[in-house]
Each structure stands twice: as structure tokens, then as C-alpha cells.
Amino acid sequence: MIKKTILGVLALGIFATSCSNDDDATVIVPETSPLTLNLNGLEALGNDFVYEGWIIVDGNPVSTGTFSSVNFPQTFQVNTLQLNAATTFVLSVEPAIDPDPAPAATKILAGDFSGASAVVNSNLVADFSQVEGAFILATPTDMDDTNESSGVWFLDNSSGAATTGLILPELSEGWKYEGWAVIDGTPISTGTFTDASMADDNAATSPFKGDSGNGPGYPGEDYLQNAPAGLTFPTDLKGQTIVVSVEPSPDNDPAPFTLKPLAHMIPSDAMEHSTITMGDGPVTILEGSVTR
């Protein structure tokens, strides 16, 4: 009888210990709440990049998740306490494989929460409401004066001397401007730049320019050789469209990004070496809403 009593006590002790261990191992899953994004104008990124949402909580960024589809609305589950405490929403462009837990410099949308929602826009990249643009047709990188309509240079020579042709705001970190000639529907880059009063990044290395120099100290391009498949250089840019876009940097997509603050179709009777004024581009701001 004594043995049975001792065994019973031991069994109760083992049972109690097991319950205690189970209680200690209980994992508390934080409560989550939906965060819904409804964004306009975003375009798909190249294969190596994704969009990532962030909420700012006590001054610190908290990821709300990544996405590559640009079909909206999209909903993400976010820690309820953090979501309720968030003051701002930010959207950035991130490497698809990203060892850095912090947001990249390429932030594209932001807005402060007011109650349950935030209105977001791309003004943190720059405000493009007061942009101006001008360019000329010329091919200064070769010695042939019979193909002058095959080059575009973002300068203004209406005063008799070359001056800056693009009046553009300074971009936030992580972004660059890029010029384009859309030739028969195919966009061909003129090069990237951050300062429109200086030559662009490929002034000395462009595969398209002539062999007699780098051209004037402004952004631009001569399309004289090494044409992409389906095109022939030299060409005639009259009747084609010139565009200035805003691109994430780094950028692995050869096509223009969605922000395009300046654009102009060159008249068929445009004069070479004469200033041509640009108009507003098709997309000067991105907007949307975020609801928690």
C-alpha cells in the first residue's frame, strides 16, 4: 500500500512538471490587423527589385511586407500595436534579395496617418510642378553635318549661347534623371544625370555617339552607330518623342520608370540647331491611400 502511495505521488509530480514545462513553452502570437494599400501609377520593377511598405513607429521603420504586383488594392497583416501607433507610411524600392533590414534610399511614396488612413504621394522624390525643358537637334560628336536630326541635346541656345535646357528640382537620394528618345515606339536612353547643367553619366562611353568627341557639357545623345535591333542609325528624330524620366538608382530595368516629368513630340518641320520647348510629361506625381 505504501509503494502504491509513493508511486501515485511521483506520478502527480511528473504530471505537474509536464504542465509547468508546457506553460513555459507557450508561444504568444502577436495580434495583427489589416493594412490595405491602394496606390495609383506604380509600374512593375525589374526582376531584381520589389516594393516594400514601412510604417514609422516612434521614429523607427517597421516593414509591412514586400510585393511585386502592381494590382491594387493589396492587404497585409501587421502587428496591431505597432500599426495603431504608426505616424507615417513609406514605400521604398528594395533589392529582391536584401540583407539590409533598413529601408533603401529609393523611397517613392510617403504620407502621414490621419486617423485610420494616410494619403501618400511621390513628393518626397521631388516636386515636379514647376519643371521646364528645352533641347536642340544636333550631332556634335561627328564631323558629318548631313545627319543633324539624329541627335538630341538638352540645352537652350535661343540667346545665342548654350545654357541649361532643363529646369528640374534636385532629386532625393536614390534617384536619377534619364533622357530618352522614343524612336518608332522604342525608348532609347540618352543617359542618366543628376545635374542638368553638366554632361550625363555616359558622355564619354556612349555606344551610340560619334568618334569625334563627347559633345557639349549637357545631357544628350547622338544616335549615329551601334543601333539596337530593329532600328537604324543615323536616324531622323523629327516626329519622335523626347522624354525625361526619373529612375531608381541602381536600376536594372532598361525601360523608362513611371515618373516622367517632361515630354515632347518633335514637330516634323522642326529646325536643327534651334531650341525646342518641352511640355509636361504624362506622369509628374504618384498618389494613393493607405488604410489601417
Rank of each mutant, 00 (worst) to 15 (best):
W175S: 08
N123I: 06
P234R: 09
G217Q: 14
T75K: 05
M265G: 11
Y177S: 07
I167F: 09
F154S: 05
F233S: 06
T186M: 13
N84L: 14
I2R: 05
F257V: 00
I56P: 02
T194M: 04
L42S: 01
P219A: 09
I167C: 00
D142W: 03
V152N: 04
K176L: 15
G213Y: 02
D184S: 15
T164W: 02
G160L: 05
G133N: 09
G46W: 07
S68D: 15
I188D: 15
S249H: 13
K107M: 09
N84S: 15
A44E: 14
D236W: 09
D211M: 02
G160M: 07
L286W: 08
I266R: 02
S172L: 03
T164C: 02
D144I: 05
M1K: 06
Q74K: 10
S114K: 07
L35Y: 03
M271W: 03
M1Y: 07
M198C: 03
A126K: 10
D142T: 03
A105P: 01
L83V: 00
I14H: 12
A196E: 05
A263L: 04
E247G: 04
I108Q: 12
N79Y: 05
M198P: 00
L42Q: 01
G210H: 04
P73A: 08
D251K: 08
T146N: 07
T32W: 06
A255Q: 13
T80L: 06
P219D: 12
T258F: 15
F135A: 00
S172K: 07
P187Q: 13
T284F: 03
P219S: 10
C19F: 13
F135D: 00
I136G: 01
S150R: 04
P187W: 11
F128M: 10
N226M: 11
F67R: 01
A255M: 09
E247K: 02
A227M: 07
K3G: 05
D195Y: 02
D253L: 12
A196T: 00
A161H: 07
A196K: 01
S122T: 04
P228A: 12
G174M: 10
N79Q: 06
T88I: 08
D269A: 04
G65F: 06
A102V: 05
A16V: 14
D127Y: 09
G288H: 10
